[in-house]
Computed example of a mutant assay.
Amino acid sequence: MTFSVNCSIMLAELPLMERPAAVKAAGFDAVEFWWPFASSVPGDAELSRFEHAITDAGVQLVGLNFNAGDMPAGDRGLVSWLGRSDEFRDNIDVVAGIGGRLGCTSFNALYGNRQAGHAPEAQDELAVRNLAAAAAAVARIGGTVLLEPVSGAPDYPLRTADDALRVIARVKEETGAGNIKLLADFYHLSVNGDDVDAVIEAHAKDFGHIQIADAPGRGAPGTGQLPLAAWTARSRELGYAGRIGLEYQAAAATAFDWARRQPAAR
C-alpha cells in the first residue's frame, strides 16, 4: 500500500515549506497540500518557492486543493460561493499550471458552505458551472477534480458519499464533464455517520482518492476505533489503485510510528 502525506495538516510544528523534506526524511515519497497560498493567484516568487520545496525534497506532489478560502476562519470552499466565483475561476488555471509543472493530476475542490440569504438552488447551479470549468481545465493535463464530503462544518452541504455523488452525476449530465470523482475521506464519512463499508462496496473502484485519519480525535491510524486497514484493503480488492492520503493530526516526533512498524506499506 502506498501512502501520501498531506503537508497542510501533518508535521504542523515545521514551517510549511520545510515539510516536504521532512516527509522524505520519514521515508515517504509523495505529498498533498491544501491550497498553500493566501490568494487565488499568488505571485511568481511564491509559486516558485512552493514548487522548489517539493522538487528539492525529491517527493512527488500527488494532490492539491483549489483555493477554499480562509479555512481557519471556517471557509470550506469557493465552488458554490455566490460573490466569489471570479476568485475560483481565476484559481483554476493557477492550479492546473502547478499540476502541469509538477506532474500532479488530482485536485480537490471543496464545495463551499451554504450562505445565509441565498437560495441553495442558486449555489448549486453555480457549483455545476464552476466544477465543469475546473474539470475542463485540468483535463488538459490528464487531471481529475475531486469532490469531498466534510465533517465539522455545519453549513457544508456535502456530508455523505451520496451527497457528493449526486453533484458529480448532475455535473456530468448537464455539462458532460466525466473527470470528477469522489474523494473518500474515511474519517469525514465515519464522523458524519455514513456507512463506510457500504460506500466502499458500491463505489471503491471509482474512488478518485482515499484519505484517512482515525476517530474519535482525527489522529493517526490505531489511535481510535476505525477499521482503517480493513477499509483500505477492501478498497484495493474492489479496484482502487491510487494512494492513501494521510490527513491526521499528530506530533511530528511520533506521527509515523504506526507506519514504521509496517515499512513495506509506504
Rank of each mutant, 00 (worst) to 15 (best):
R260N: 14
E148M: 13
V59M: 06
R101L: 07
S4Y: 02
V31N: 08
A230W: 11
R19A: 05
D195F: 03
D124W: 08
A252R: 14
D124A: 12
Y240R: 13
R101P: 11
C7V: 15
S85R: 06
A133M: 09
V171D: 01
H209N: 13
A119T: 07
I180Y: 00
H203S: 04
R114H: 10
D162Y: 01
S235V: 03
I212E: 01
R114L: 12
V145D: 09
D29A: 09
A250F: 10
R140I: 11
P36D: 06
L110A: 05
L16Y: 05
S151E: 06
G74T: 11
G217H: 10
G63D: 05
A116H: 06
L182R: 03
A164G: 14
Q225N: 13
E125P: 02
I200N: 00
G222R: 02
A127C: 04
F256P: 04
F186H: 05
P216C: 06
G99S: 02
N179V: 09
Y156E: 00
Q60Y: 10
I180A: 01
N6A: 12
E87K: 14
R129A: 11
A229D: 15
Y111S: 03
D90G: 13
T144H: 11
L102Q: 07
G100W: 00
A116Q: 12
I141L: 13
G178R: 11
D155F: 11
N192F: 06
P42A: 14
V41G: 06
A198C: 07
S4E: 07
G97A: 07
D162Q: 13
